[in-house]
Design a binder for these strands. Structure first.
Lengths: 263, 263
DNA sequence: CGCCGTCTTGACGAATCTCAAATAAAGTGG
DNA sequence: CCACTTTATTTGAGATTCGTCAAGACGGCG
């Protein structure tokens, strides 16, 4: 994501006042953005494996492409669910709200990943998605997607894959939160990020953490001090180098072993 | 589930040797079982809201109904994914296997719930489902379900709901594991069970835990001793009465408040 | 009736959190 | 671009929660 950061547009950060203000503030950039079939993410995003025919159908329902400035909310809890969002550029966090109002980060998302699946069940979003840097997403009308899935078997399959991927992603987190020590959690987090960057053609050994220590902790079920201390310790043990939010993995093999360690 | 337990068939527990042996050992009882349209669970299971037409289609792909004896495995990690399973009677636990071989209980499931969604993504199951008591499930051919979903919009919607329900279920667990104290986790677990029993017409205040303390702990990210101690403490505080696996909630309101408590 | 798996309870220890203070980095307005 | 304000990060010391180890009780099943 280092590369992405370099080209990110610098935009004044605005505070969202209401869902409606927030939504209308997102800039529609449909004219300038390319279509799915020419998108560089087509191998990793919703279009994977589609025929030309199905691709045309998909392009028809990708109604809008929009920019979301750093800190802005793409959707929030209670919003009506109308579309899935494919990240074109940038990154997001998704956040869950517990009954007591406490927030918990449910995930960090990068280009090619699909956001918004939490709304499929009840027709309303059940959490929120916030841009961690200036970002760009494609909105995919869910009603359109459903219609297309009925005609095109490949689209149906891809929609199922998107939902199933979310199920598997959450399972991995359950295992992390349910069975791992703080040390293992942080190692798992870093290894996961590393692999996802690699899959997107970015460096898997050096990258920028787009989130605060507190947000990392929220995701991993730890306090920010614990995250900070562990990063310092990993550095002392020569597993990585950390300078603020820039991380360089020096010994990814040991990090991986840490995660798989039975204890 | 107390009522269910009472009528459960007593079957010798067998040890599963291989996935294939295990699978073939499950008894097909299709002849004796009723169809979806007359099933008492139709309001809570896959058929909710279907027209007569769609219901007929659904019945056609519910190929087999089978018994799974207590302790037997319905599917296990790596098995080819061919069907979803609707629980007709009894209860199951689903188990995840971490990279290090550690097991973690991912959920407890009761009649009307759908198992097997973990296989939708990769075509192979990613965890296992084990009967906690003598149980009965309907196997729903996934290929058939997909075909039907293309014709019948209502079926498509229900399939999406099943997948989305699993996403939301896992999110709740993420919040429990990521933000709650041991006390809150156990309270949340009991309240959740209570509400699900109520939704099925069983007593919401008195029920039998079908799993061991260790399994509860695995689900909640706690050790069995911690679970045991907390149950004892809740009893001392007159929140519930516990006698082995029989639990009677005396003060569900306070239990619920415990869960929603900010700190 | 006796065995084995399950459960309870206690004492102790380790991992993580809390509170606090100092430092570093990022954002803001002139 | 600089000075100022705010936010984020690091690190330490002490408190707390939960896990570990161990022993004994209970209970279902053969």
């Amino acid at each position: 994501m280092g590369a992405v950061a370099a080209v990110a547009v610098k935009t004044a950060m605005t505070t969202n006042v209401s869902p409606f203000r927030a939504r209308s503030a997102l800039r529609d950039v449909s004219r300038t953005a390319p279509t799915c079939s020419t998108c560089t993410l087509r191998e990793v995003c919703l279009p994977v494996g589609l025929t030309t025919d199905a691709m045309t159908g998909l392009e028809a329902i990708v109604t809008t492409r929009m920019r979301v400035a750093k800190g802005e909310t793409l959707y929030r809890s209670g919003d009506r669910f109308t579309a899935l969002y494919a990240i074109r550029l940038g990154s997001f966090k998704t956040v869950l709200l517990a009954d007591d109002g406490h927030e918990q980060v449910a995930g960090y998302h990068m280009p090619g990943e699909i956001l918004g699946t939490d709304g499929v069940g009840l027709g309303r979003h059940d959490g929120e998605a916030i841009a961690l840097e200036d970002s760009e997403v494609c909105a995919i009308s869910f009603e359109g997607l459903r219609r297309l899935a009925r005609d095109q078997e490949a689209v149906q399959q891809n929609l199922h894959r998107v939902l199933a991927d979310e199920i598997m992603r959450e399972r991995k987190i359950m295992v992390i939160l349910g069975t791992m020590s703080a040390e293992q959690r942080l190692a798992a987090f870093l290894v996961d990020l590393s692999e996802r960057y690699r899959a997107r053609g970015y460096s898997s050994s050096e990258f920028v953490l787009r989130m605060t220590r507190e947000e990392i902790g929220s995701y991993l079920g730890l306090k920010l001090e614990t995250v900070s201390r562990l990063l310092s310790r990993f550095q002392r043990e020569a597993l990585l180098q950390v300078q603020g939010r820039v991380v360089k993995l020096l010994d990814p093999i040991t990090l991986r072993q840490l995660v798989e360690q039975s204890s």
